[in-house]
């Protein structure tokens, strides 16, 4: 029987995730997506990953959600709330449900259920920093390069070119 706190957070995350895809108005969908990210951050706290939860709130709720809301303001049109997707919706529900049931059945019969107790030692952000610098310094550098390249690429793509 799952813990009540876990159950509440999991249901909150799932319902807001579905709401972000299904809400009639796109702005409400963006807000629901931000709430879903908040639920995932709470899951991280349950898993004793406090630094990761803080990082998730900073990056996802602080920047990505705000970016999405600004883009929605830029490209909003009334037409979208009236688009009917009939066949695609049924196909999507059937595919997602069958995927969930098949993978869930296979993993239920595997040895995953026997893993019950977490590791007693809790890693903190000190360990993350040590590992990031000692073992994965090259990945850190490349991630920085990719960040810079994506910012430049996004700026170049979104630039208005005026011809005179």
């Amino acid at each position: 029987m799952p813990d009540l706190v876990f159950l509440t957070i999991a249901l909150f995350t799932l319902i807001t995730a579905i709401l972000s895809l299904e809400s009639r108005e796109l702005v409400y969908g963006a807000v629901a997506l931000a709430l879903s990210f908040l639920g995932v951050a709470a899951i991280f706290i349950l898993l004793d990953a406090l630094y990761l939860a803080m990082f998730q709130i900073l990056v996802y709720i602080g920047s990505i959600s705000v970016l999405i809301i600004f883009v929605i303001m830029l490209v909003r049109r009334e037409k979208w709330s009236t688009i009917k997707s009939g066949n695609e919706r049924i196909l999507g529900i059937v595919t997602a449900l069958s995927f969930f049931l098949v993978i869930g059945y296979v993993s239920y019969n595997s040895g995953l259920l026997s893993i019950v107790t977490p590791n007693p030692s809790i890693p903190d952000f000190y360990d993350i920093g040590i590992q990031m610098i000692n073992d994965y310094w090259l990945i850190l550098e490349v991630t920085g390069l990719v960040l810079a390249a994506s910012v430049i690429g996004a700026l170049t793509m979104a630039k208005i070119e005026r011809e005179n």
């Binding site: 895809l21 993978i103 995953l112």
Partner: peptide, 23 residues
């Protein structure tokens, strides 16, 4: 919690995402 609950939550989120990508 046992690990399986987190796995099922992750699987459910993945299914929601797949539904969104298709529909």
């Amino acid at each position: 919690e046992p690990l399986f609950n987190y796995f099922i939550l992750s699987l459910a989120l993945l299914s929601v995402g797949i539904y969104g990508l298709i529909a």
